[in-house]
């Protein structure tokens, strides 16, 4: 499956991937983050239930220093 994550395309061997599984693959478990899928926010409570589709565009963001 091909996903576009934070502007870069990445391929995954798995044919089916939930948002929760993606977070595991990316070694982001336990990090405070928010995820937008094709312009819509995926609430953390929905990570397990949300299945990704080929070509999905994901934004994964966190808080950084800023003024």
């Amino acid at each position: 499956m091909l996903l576009i994550i934070n502007g870069k395309s990445r391929s995954f061997e798995a044919a089916n991937l939930s948002v929760a599984e993606l977070v595991q693959h990316l070694e982001l478990v336990g990090k405070r983050l928010a995820i937008e899928r094709n312009g819509e926010i995926v609430p953390r409570s929905q990570f397990e239930a949300t299945q990704l589709a080929n070509g999905d565009k994901l934004e994964i963001v966190g808080a950084v220093g800023g003024g």
Partner: peptide, 20 residues
């Protein structure tokens, strides 16, 4: 305190400390 929202670094420095 203000914070900015930015894309998370993927696949690099997994153990890197964060502002939080």
């Amino acid at each position: 305190i203000t914070v900015a929202i930015r894309r998370t670094n993927i696949g690099q420095n997994a153990g890197e400390p964060s502002l939080l």
